[in-house]
Amino acid sequence: MKHKIKRSASLLLTTLVFSMGVLPILSWVGIAQVQQKQNSQISTMDKQTISAFENRVKNYVKLRNQVKAKLPKLSKSSTPEQLESYRKSFEESLRAARVGAKRGDVFNTEGSDYIRRTLKSEFKGKDRAQLREIVFDAQTQAVKLRVNYPYPEPTELVEMPATVLLNLPQLPKEIKYRFVGHHLLLVDRDNNLIIDYMLDALP
């Protein structure tokens, strides 16, 4: 046991001594360049579809912010009790304000078609094998797809691949895309409610 502990202690610490020298100067492929290329490939019709999707998102954000404004303000240095209480209050109030919300309210047919096409192009090819691994290896089987219900708390949140996020319509900070298997969800960051979802978003 003593030997094990010594070994673990030696593994435990690593020293780095850096001296500041010449920083590497390497070629840079700007994110902006990638985006510019992508934007130029979007048709006028798709631009209208994206704009309409973003408007529906804005309407949701407006509603959730109205609900939020009626709640006690959450401090940026809260206690766990304050966090738990706030999340529950926000969830309950917003669910009440969105009674009748249904699948497709945000992800309508045209918007879903556009997103499916976008994802299909991102998820093809051998070099995209890791994207599929990230999404499909995640333990999200427990997630029940129900609009206006919370994403279950103990369930892993799948990393949204950065290369995919750069191509999807942009969302305000309050809303996140989330993959659950082949399906794509919109989830509220601060109360974990599933705002909407689209089935078979991934090929």
Binding site: S75, K76, L83, Y86, R87, E156, L157, K173, N192
Partner: peptide
């Protein structure tokens, strides 16, 4: 991390000051 709810950004002891 992928197991963390974003609400943690408001937890005092994590010193994230409400930011992701």
């Amino acid at each position: 991390g992928n197991h963390d709810l974003p609400m943690q950004i408001n937890y005092a002891n994590f010193n994230m000051n409400g930011k992701e």
